[in-house]
């Protein structure tokens, strides 16, 4: 009956607990790199009014298409606006769309999935068939259709992307709950007079939730990308607001002669998406009990 001794940094920590995940993720170089990049973008976008002497919408005809220089680190766009200022302002849009739309889709999806998985039967059929309709469309097409209905603007863009992402979370949550509902500890909880609400809140949701953390991290990246796509087709954030997708869309006309107009926002999109994906990957590995350190 020798107790397994575990000498790694995660010894004694609850698998799936925040501390445990952190101790594993912090040993993953890719994830830490991603975290640094995202933190840097967030901090810089918060400080940009103090760092940059330029206004993101100030037109300066003398600097049209200016190449990167000491005055304009990333150059200027077709109206002579400083690209660095614009791209860092743009981070506010892209990241907040990413965070808040995932907040909407995760909250809504988790509640729907939990109800569906726990109660089963008619409730399950009603919710899942309704979500099937949602999922019949490609997610980005659905987001485009929804924002065409809602109109443009930051809040509407968040709502459209949030709703379009909901079915994924609902499906995952439902599947997790179906697996946990049959476990003996749920029966044991019932046998010691746990109420249904307590069983769901204390025994089912905490155990069903951890796989979703990964989905959340990855979805933030996807939502940011979709926000850029929406702006690119002219539905999300409107000019002159400097959303990354909108910057790409505007710059693509001059791509041949002045590639820095698209390269800069493109690189920011890529770095952000990649960072979130790396973090998501690391969290997934940390949450998988089969992957020992």
């Amino acid at each position: 009956m020798a107790k397994k001794t575990n000498k790694s940094s995660t010894a004694g920590l609850k698998p799936g607990s925040l501390k445990y995940v952190w101790s594993k993720v912090s040993h993953n170089a890719g994830a830490m790199g991603g975290l640094v990049i995202i933190c840097a973008i967030i901090i810089l976008s918060a400080l940009i009014p103090f760092i940059s002497p330029y206004d993101y919408s100030a037109i300066d005809m003398s600097n049209m298409y200016a190449l990167p220089s000491m005055q304009h680190l990333f150059g200027c766009d077709e109206l002579g606006r400083d690209i660095m200022t614009r791209v860092l302002y743009g981070a506010r849009y892209t990241l907040s769309i990413g965070f808040f739309s995932v907040l909407i889709s995760a909250t809504g999806g988790i509640i729907l999935g939990a109800l569906s998985g726990y109660f089963g039967g008619l409730v399950d059929t009603a919710i899942m068939r309704f979500l099937d309709i949602f999922q019949a469309f490609p997610q980005i097409l659905l987001a485009i259709a929804l924002s065409a209905v809602f109109g443009s603007g930051l809040d509407k863009c968040i709502l459209a992307l949030g709703l379009a992402g909901m079915p994924n979370f609902a499906r995952m949550m439902r599947a997790n709950i179906l697996g946990i509902r049959g476990a003996e500890y749920i029966e044991a909880a019932a046998s010691i007079n746990c109420t249904k609400v307590r069983i769901i809140l204390k025994h089912i949701i905490p155990n069903a939730f951890s796989p979703l953390i990964v989905q959340i991290a990855m979805s933030i990246a996807a939502a940011g990308l979709q926000a850029s796509s929406l702006s690119f087709v002219g539905l999300g954030i409107q000019a002159p607001e400097p959303e990354w997708g909108a910057m790409l869309a505007a710059g693509r006309n001059f791509m041949r002669d002045y590639p820095h107009l698209v390269i800069v926002p493109g690189l920011f999109i890529m770095a952000t998406v990649m960072s979130f994906n790396l973090i998501g990957d690391a969290i997934r590995d940390a949450l998988d009990p089969k992957l020992k350190d």
Binding site: E184, A188, N207
Partner: peptide, 30 residues
């Protein structure tokens, strides 16, 4: 409270997120 059950599989009959103490105390608290 008068009739209880001991389960077959000790690996699925305990909630993996509760400590031993929490598991034993749950019926007492309830």
């Amino acid at each position: 409270e008068k009739m209880q059950i001991i389960f077959q599989d000790p690996f699925s009959s305990l909630n993996p997120r509760l400590t031993i103490q929490e598991t034993i105390q749950e019926p007492l608290k309830l």
